[in-house]
Design a protein around this nucleic acid. Sequence first.
DNA 1: ACCTGATTTATACATGTGTTTTAATCATCC
DNA 2: GGATGATTAAAACACATGTATAAATCAGGT
Lengths: 232, 232
Amino acid sequence: MNTTNVVTDLETRQRLLNAAAELFAERGFNNVTVRELCQVAGANVAAVNYHFRDKLGLYKEVVEMAANAMHQGKVEVIEAAEPLPPEERLRTYIRLTLHHLLDPHEDSWMEKLIAREMMDPTPALDLIVEKGIKPTSQRMGVMVAELLGAPLSDDRVWQCFLSVQAQCLFYKMSKPVSARMAPAGFEYTPQVIEALAEHIADFSLAGIRAIAQKTGGTRRGQTEGSNIGEHS
Amino acid sequence: MNTTNVVTDLETRQRLLNAAAELFAERGFNNVTVRELCQVAGANVAAVNYHFRDKLGLYKEVVEMAANAMHQGKVEVIEAAEPLPPEERLRTYIRLTLHHLLDPHEDSWMEKLIAREMMDPTPALDLIVEKGIKPTSQRMGVMVAELLGAPLSDDRVWQCFLSVQAQCLFYKMSKPVSARMAPAGFEYTPQVIEALAEHIADFSLAGIRAIAQKTGGTRRGQTEGSNIGEHS
DNA sequence: ACCTGATTTATACATGTGTTTTAATCATCC
DNA sequence: GGATGATTAAAACACATGTATAAATCAGGT
């Protein structure tokens, strides 16, 4: 079946990757059995070891996929937002990010997997940070820096960005709790997401403006806070 | 050894609970073996089954401990903040919460365990929500409502509160990533935590003020958003 | 001192899991 | 069409893990 035979079979290998992405994201590395994985992928039990050496080998490839997908998704959002004027840029960034995270139609297995890695770091997290986060961190910093009227090296830039990011991610991570707090049918419909995005944008833009006006206080350079802007 | 024999032995049972709290929080239910747990607790392998019927029985008791500890911790923070004027109240709430979450001296195994449950909900999450979150949600809502000048039923109250909470929790959850983004020695020293708290407070107070002034837009009652204030 | 019930211990059992092995199947090339 | 190398399939292995069992130990009451 192979025409070139340099890259191994695409059929089952790809099916395994897809199933693994879904399952690992949903339940974590240790709570997914190779047997179940192969059953979902419609492959034999030995397929994982044949194609990926290990269960861990498969996992690493999935993480790599996730890091790349994360990077690509971020680039898309950033590039959709960048041409807009500063405030609209942030609003758009928030809106797109939130839809991407919460819209039930997008399954967003990458962020699930990444959230999992944040909670239970494995060596694979290094890969995520290097390939999925660092490469775009500068561009996202610039977005906030402009709003803030401060240089990238200012710690407030990274702090404000994290405040925005925190609000977006929180709604995804806290969904099981929110569902139990809400009265009855609780769902992230597009309208609800829009309303949330508007809230986060209003809240954050005001927050950023306030931080921008504040003078004095701790304002160190890049000595301690973060190395935003120096992506490797 | 029992004086009353109504409550079973305190020695090993308690040791088991302590070890379980630590280990389950650190690595999750499935990634802790009964054998390791008993070894840490200095007990026999059968001790878990004898004292708690199941591994799951032990876990449920640990979760109950966590929910109660969480409730108590929240009450302490709230009662330290409540007598202060509104703005200082929120500042204090943020400061104390952040220290509690990030200070490396407090191990805060409860929140680790709860964060874990949020990510991988088990039936135990219901207990956490009922005993650890709902009972204090009203008082925390009041704090924001006052700042906002809106009734508790207003959706903006809950949204603003979540925006604050999100920022606090995010720093805990994202620590592994932050550590990899930061240049060298990265640590949540008390000074760093203070600076973070100040940022979050400034950012959030401005955000809340802006939301308070905003009129129009979506502003539904308690029909859809959350049932804050109706804790059972 | 002995009995009694609770607790601890050592061991065994059943099962689930990742991995290996060995043979069968398939596609491709001569 | 048969040889060849890659892929798949079925079964087995080795081991870890949760749980159960049965004996041993302990503490307190009479």
